[in-house]
Nucleic acid binder design. Structure first.
Lengths: 266, 266
DNA sequence: CGTATTGTTGATCTAGGTCAATGAATGTGG
DNA sequence: CCACATTCATTGACCTAGATCAACAATACG
């Protein structure tokens, strides 16, 4: 798993978030997408920064971080655990938009609107950090770097969302599941976890819903992959055994183009 | 079709873009997503604004606006015509990410990165307007409203991209095509065109690729819709006859939630 | 006006959906 | 800590939506 032992965040972050050894499945502050913002607090007078204090709060499994239609009150980062976002169709069935892993930001698409666009629910017991970005205007005029950081994060998310779009939405069940697993793997690595061995926080039903295939097909595809020695699955635990073969199946290799700068700042 | 007769843009825009009666399939400046930026030029000294002059340039059918891997040189708006963006898989087949209609912005996801993430090709003879946003840093510090506008546009695009994601990616061919047509219709209306009668700039093959179904299925589904009196298709021309019924098929109604503010600023 | 490209239609076949039964895991109260 | 319940996952049998292949029709274009 290779978790970083020390959990030192720079500048203001040290004052805000307790320093201790991170638990399994918990991301360290410097591997979080908020990190860029944390650094900015050095520039800002303490009394102002306190308004934007990051507050950590627990969200028990099954409870929501925010719901569709609620007034926008800020952006969240996953500290530990996992979250899914979904829309509810008029027929009351849910359509999963995305899964969020430790270190990833949640609710960005609601910035500059008045209400959240989707519902975010914890897949397991989760810790989130909160940045009340609705008060952003206070900072914008005086601290342009804050806005630049935000622009950066938004642009990166837009690019990622496009990747997501290709990932699912088309082709065979094999391609979809392979691409999904590789995507998860890559994201775990990016936020400081091991990339071959991980735990699926979501149900088979959720994976199926997200990929647009049936639960049974997810199950059967896992089995087929296992038979081909591409991976091992036992319940929620997955170990990728043959990443190149999975990439071959996924058709599209998720290594970003050189110089694309997706990893640049965090 | 109800095209607006006058093409008056406010402030600086008047100095930059010629005022004349817009052609069919050409968007007026005040219905363009760039409009928010245009207004900002009032705040900025002329000599600075000239660096960021909008330049209109023609892109003949089949030629590219930008290509995957090219250095980022700015954001484009479609003035007239249409564009598709796609990625090329290692197997040299293309995967269409999105279509862009008059008034819509192109290349936003490459902001703050060094290279474009996808290739953009004109579906027909197209006019684009260009904003060299790579020189954005020049403006950022002194004109925070510029950045705010950019944040707004990025957040709205992120939200739209999520809508796109639900739209396709799942369910039956009927649902996908219905949702696709309603989405096009809504976008035409938003940018000042009629919403029931429009021309499909893209090939059946492109629609199929985008929706993740076969060309033949697109054709057959059109025919079935026509038999059910939901629409008329003759070649590239589409007339929606029964929008409520199509919404029913599409499962998800694309009217944004009250107060979501997706239409607020433009 | 003929050639190339794009679109339609028909016939066949298969990936994956649906239904239903069973099995494993997880949670709960005694 | 165990018995039972509930939720979640797997497996099998069957059947339809839509892919694929192929021929043909309609446009677009020089």
């Amino acid at each position: 798993m290779s978790l970083t032992e020390k959990s030192v965040a720079s500048g203001m972050a040290e004052r805000i978030i307790a320093i201790r050894t991170p638990r399994r499945n918990e991301v360290t502050c410097e591997r979080c997408e908020f990190h860029g913002f944390l650094q900015l607090f050095n520039e800002i007078p303490l009394e102002l920064a306190q308004i934007f204090l990051f507050r950590q709060r627990p969200v028990p499994k099954g409870e929501s971080v925010f719901r569709e239609g609620q007034p926008f009150h800020g952006v969240y980062a996953i500290k530990e655990g996992g979250v899914k976002t979904y829309l509810t169709t008029p027929q009351q069935s849910e359509r999963i938009l995305s899964f969020y892993l430790p270190g990833e930001l949640l609710g960005l698409e609601a910035i500059r609107t008045t209400h959240y666009q989707s519902t975010a629910v914890a897949l397991e017991n989760t810790q989130v950090c909160w940045l009340p970005l609705n008060q952003l205007d206070l900072l914008g005029d005086r601290f342009p770097h804050f806005q630049e950081q935000l622009i950066h994060v938004l642009a990166v998310h837009l690019a990622k969302q496009q990747q997501q779009f290709i990932l699912s939405a088309r082709q065979s069940a094999d391609e979809r599941l392979a691409a999904f697993l590789l995507n998860l793997s890559e994201r775990y690595v990016r936020h400081g976890f091991g990339g071959e061995l991980f735990r699926l926080a979501m149900l088979r039903q959720d994976i199926a819903n997200f990929l647009g295939i049936s639960m049974e097909t997810v199950s059967r595809t896992f089995k087929r992959f296992q038979a081909k020695k591409l991976l091992n699955v036992t319940g929620k635990h997955v170990r990728l055994l043959d990443v190149p073969a999975l990439q071959e199946i996924a058709q599209y290799v998720f290594t970003p183009p050189p110089g694309a700068g997706l990893h640049s700042t965090f």
